[in-house]
Lab assay of single mutants.
Amino acid sequence: NQASVVANQLIPIQTALTLVMMRSEVVTPVGIPAEDIPRLVSMQVNRAVPLGTTLMPDMVKGYA
């Protein structure tokens, strides 16, 4: 099973992502693949992302 990127904390809207905000976890449905974590650093979320939420491509500006 492929690991996805999951929020390690509440990430407020417009926040630039850092490594400490994300973790990898095998979840359903599958979100952004964990191997993309380095690419996500400094990208902004376009909505508030609660703790434990799987990051989906449409939540990160410039990802999809």
Rank of each mutant, 00 (worst) to 15 (best):
V5E: 01
T28G: 06
L40W: 03
G52N: 12
I11F: 03
P29M: 04
P29N: 05
T54F: 03
I11D: 01
I32H: 02
D58A: 11
M22H: 00
V27W: 04
V30C: 11
A7S: 11
L55F: 09
V20T: 15
L17D: 03
I11P: 00
V6E: 02
V5S: 03
L17S: 01
L19A: 09
R23Q: 04
P50S: 13
M56D: 04
R47T: 13
G52A: 06
Q9A: 08
V41R: 05
N8H: 06
M43H: 09
R47S: 12
V49Y: 03
P38C: 14
P29F: 04
D58T: 09
L10K: 13
R39D: 06
T54E: 00
I13W: 12
M59G: 03
Y63R: 02
M59R: 03
G62A: 12
V30Y: 14
V60W: 03
D58I: 09
D36E: 12
A16Q: 11
M43K: 08
S42E: 09
V49M: 03
I32R: 01
A48D: 14
N46D: 08
I37Q: 04
I13R: 10
Q2K: 08
E25P: 00
G62L: 07
V5N: 02
P38F: 12
Q2L: 15
V20H: 13
A3H: 14
R39I: 10
I37G: 03
K61I: 15
I11G: 01
V26S: 09
V27K: 07
V45F: 01
V5Y: 03
L40C: 03
M59H: 08
A3M: 11
R39N: 10
L10I: 10
P38I: 08
V6D: 02
E25M: 10
G52I: 04
I32Y: 00
A34L: 03
V60A: 02
V41K: 03
T28A: 12
V30D: 07
D36V: 08
G52H: 07
G62P: 05
M43V: 04
M22W: 03
L10M: 15
I11L: 07
N8A: 15
P38H: 15
M59F: 10
S4I: 02
V20A: 14
R39C: 15
V60Y: 02
S42I: 04
N8R: 09
L55A: 02
V41F: 05
A34E: 09
L19Q: 07
N46F: 10
M21G: 00
S4A: 03
I32Q: 01
T15G: 05
I37A: 07
V49S: 01
E35M: 10
A64W: 06
N8C: 09
R23L: 05
M59I: 05
A7W: 04
Q9L: 10
I13C: 15
A34G: 08
M59C: 06
I13M: 15
V27G: 02
P29I: 05
V26M: 12
D58E: 14
L10N: 15
A34D: 07
M59V: 07
S42R: 10
P12R: 09
A48V: 12
T54C: 05
T15D: 03
T18N: 05
N46P: 02
P50E: 13
P29Y: 04
N46R: 10
E25K: 09
E35L: 13
P12S: 07
Q9R: 14
Y63T: 03
T18I: 06
A16Y: 13
V20R: 13
V49A: 04
V41S: 03
V26Y: 12
A48T: 15
R47Y: 11
V27H: 03
Q44D: 03
M21N: 06
M22C: 04
A48K: 10
E35N: 14
L17Y: 03
T28L: 10
T15N: 04
V6I: 13
M22V: 07
S24T: 15
K61N: 14
N46M: 14
V27A: 06
V45H: 02
T54L: 04
I11T: 00
Q44G: 03
I11C: 03
V45G: 00
T54R: 02
V60S: 01
Q2S: 13
V49G: 01
M43F: 09
L51M: 15
A3E: 13
V41T: 06
I11S: 01
V6Y: 03
Q9M: 14
V41Y: 04
R23M: 05
V20S: 15
T28N: 12
V30F: 14
L19C: 10
M43I: 04
Q2I: 09
L51F: 15
D58W: 14
S24I: 08
R23C: 05
Q44T: 15
I37Y: 02
V49P: 02
Q44I: 11
L17I: 09
V27S: 05
G52V: 03
I37D: 01
L51Y: 14
T18C: 05
S4R: 02
V49Q: 03
P29S: 04
Q14T: 12
I37W: 04
I32M: 02
A16N: 07
Y63S: 04
T53H: 09
G31V: 00
N8W: 04
G52S: 05
P12W: 04
Y63W: 13
T53C: 09
R39T: 08
D36K: 10
R39M: 13
I32C: 05
L55T: 01
P33Q: 06
M43E: 04
V26F: 09
L40N: 00
I37K: 05
A64F: 07
L40T: 01
G62Q: 09
Q14R: 11
S24A: 15
A16F: 15
L10R: 11
P50N: 10
V30W: 11
G31S: 02
G62C: 13
D58V: 08
G52Q: 02
A3F: 09
N46I: 10
V49L: 09
K61S: 14
I32S: 00
V20G: 11
N8K: 08
T53G: 11
V30T: 11
L40S: 00
V6Q: 03
Q9P: 00
A16E: 08
M22I: 09
T18P: 01
G31N: 01
G31F: 03
T28D: 15
T15F: 05
G62R: 06
P50I: 06
M56I: 07
P57M: 06
R47D: 07
L40F: 02
V49I: 15
R23E: 04
Q14W: 15
V45D: 03
L55K: 00
E25Y: 07
D58Q: 11
P12D: 08
N46H: 11
Y63N: 02
P57N: 05
K61A: 13
L19F: 12
N46V: 11
D36L: 10
L55Y: 03
T28M: 09
M43G: 01
S42D: 10
G52K: 02
Q14S: 14
N46G: 08
Q14D: 15
T18M: 07
Y63G: 02
S24G: 11
A16P: 14
M22L: 13
R47Q: 14
Q44S: 14
Q9G: 04
V6T: 05
L19R: 11
T53E: 10
G62V: 04
A7P: 00
T28K: 07
G52M: 04
N8P: 00
N8G: 08
L10W: 13
I32K: 01
G52T: 01
P57W: 10
R47A: 09
N8F: 04
L55E: 00
N1D: 15
A34Y: 07
L51K: 12
P12T: 07
L55V: 11
Y63H: 04
D58S: 11
G62H: 11
T54Y: 03
P57E: 07
V41M: 08
A64Y: 06
V6F: 03
V45N: 01
V45W: 02
P57F: 07
V60M: 05
Y63Q: 03
R23W: 04
M21H: 08
L10G: 10
T53Y: 12
Q44P: 07
A34W: 08
E35S: 12
M59K: 01
K61P: 10
P57C: 08
Y63A: 02
I32G: 01
Q2Y: 12
M56L: 13
M56Q: 13
I11R: 01
L40M: 06
G31K: 02
A7N: 00
S42T: 15
A16K: 09
V60P: 00
T28P: 01
I37V: 06
V27C: 07
V45C: 08
Q14M: 11
Q2M: 12
R39A: 07
L17K: 00
L55N: 00
I13Q: 15
R47L: 08
L19H: 14
I13T: 12
M21K: 01
V6R: 00
A3W: 10
S24H: 08
P33T: 08
Y63C: 05
N8D: 10
V26W: 11
Q14P: 02
R23T: 06
V6S: 00
A34S: 14
S24F: 06
M56N: 05
V5L: 03
P57K: 12
S4M: 02
V49F: 02
A34F: 06
N8V: 08
T54K: 04
Q14I: 05
I13D: 15
Q14N: 13
V5A: 10
T54V: 09
G62W: 10
